[in-house]
Design a binder for these strands. Structure first.
Lengths: 196, 196
DNA sequence: TTCGTCATGTAATGGGTTACATGATTAC
DNA sequence: GTAATCATGTAACCCATTACATGACGAA
């Protein structure tokens, strides 16, 4: 669901679709690239639900002379050069965003990542709850890896084995990271910006 | 696409759907859990394409053993539930499997994982090609992470930053793992099963 | 002039998720 | 006898991917 990150980004600042996509990549990392065919329909859904509204974009700085416009008889709603549709979040949208963000059922990688990206909008307790659920989920997966290996190790070839081991190591590293986040979350405000 | 792992597992041994699902989890790890609503339609698609055929399951021990089977050691492979539909790969299916497996465009995590699970069916050169493409893909992502950080670091909060750093570390670990696999692949057969 | 980027969309297609429905067998 | 597990499927919904289509602008 694109709705959550789209609302989250628009909440910070109104944007048009094209830029939105770039920001999504910047915020969620290069593995998370959305396609136009999913972004624009998502925006349309949000608009239909009253969560965002389209704005007439303020005219960008028209250097290079006013007479340069060919075919000036363009539709009046298109204020300038490239037609862009800027979207702004409505109050309804803000509510939707908060509600989505707080769904603590979000435990798998993608849902968790999406929430972490907007953690600052959550109350500290909700953050902790989410982190702990994520940790529990990862620990459960880790246990499944282990029992899996006990049962099937003999039947696996070296590739499968290597993969399982690597995935387990990754899961352990994920858990360690989450625990770090939990520790920081509980720590009573000790920014300590540089190593002493 | 479930087709690839389903064919791969059935290639090793004919099974019914329920068991197939368990084996999928065992082979691909606990993060890869398929639902019935995707497995059975996939089997139907494969059957329709002539890649698998349904077998009448050899009648399970209709021993009418009331009480006789109580707690008894039973056949490990065949205990019954109810009517089971066992699927077997056809020649067409074998060809499909090989063809799918060799598609080296498979570079993202899921496609790569799926192929790695059946690496033993690929020629060593194809394996290397796939590994190198995967490595290149990950290195590209890593570069994107870095340029991303250069551009946006100031605008990210500590959560986003932590996430990017963790994801980068994970990507680096993935690359190191792939490189290990590449090294092993190139090594001229030195099994060395135990530590000396 | 042509290419690359900016910018917005639509259409078809596929297939995964969830929920629903059913029924047999085993273990307690 | 009843709960859990085995076992197979269907149907509705959702929505992501892909490909297609358009067109303005800036720079080479």
């Amino acid at each position: 669901m694109l709705e959550l990150p789209v609302l989250g980004l628009l909440k910070e600042r109104s944007m048009h679709g094209y830029e939105l996509r770039k920001q999504l990549g910047a915020m969620l990392g290069p593995f998370y690239q959305v396609s136009w065919g999913s972004l624009y329909p998502a925006l349309r859904r949000l608009a239909k639900a009253g969560a965002v509204e389209k704005l007439a974009e303020p005219a960008p700085p028209r250097r290079s002379g006013k007479g340069a416009r060919k075919g000036g008889a363009r539709d009046a709603t298109l204020t300038s050069g490239r037609r862009r549709t800027v979207y702004r979040v409505t109050d309804t949208g803000e509510q939707m965003f908060t509600q989505m963000l707080e769904e603590t059922a979000a435990v798998d990688a993608e849902h968790f990542t999406l929430r972490l990206a907007f953690f600052r909008y959550l109350r500290p307790e909700t953050r902790l709850t989410l982190l702990e659920r994520r940790r529990a989920y990862l620990q459960e997966k880790l246990a499944q890896f282990k029992s899996n290996l006990l049962t099937y190790r003999e039947r696996m070839d070296s590739y499968a084995l290597s993969m399982q081991n690597h995935d387990m190591a990754t899961t352990e590293s994920d858990i360690a990271w989450i625990e770090e986040l939990i520790t920081q979350e509980r720590a009573p405000e000790m920014p300590r910006p540089k190593t002493t």
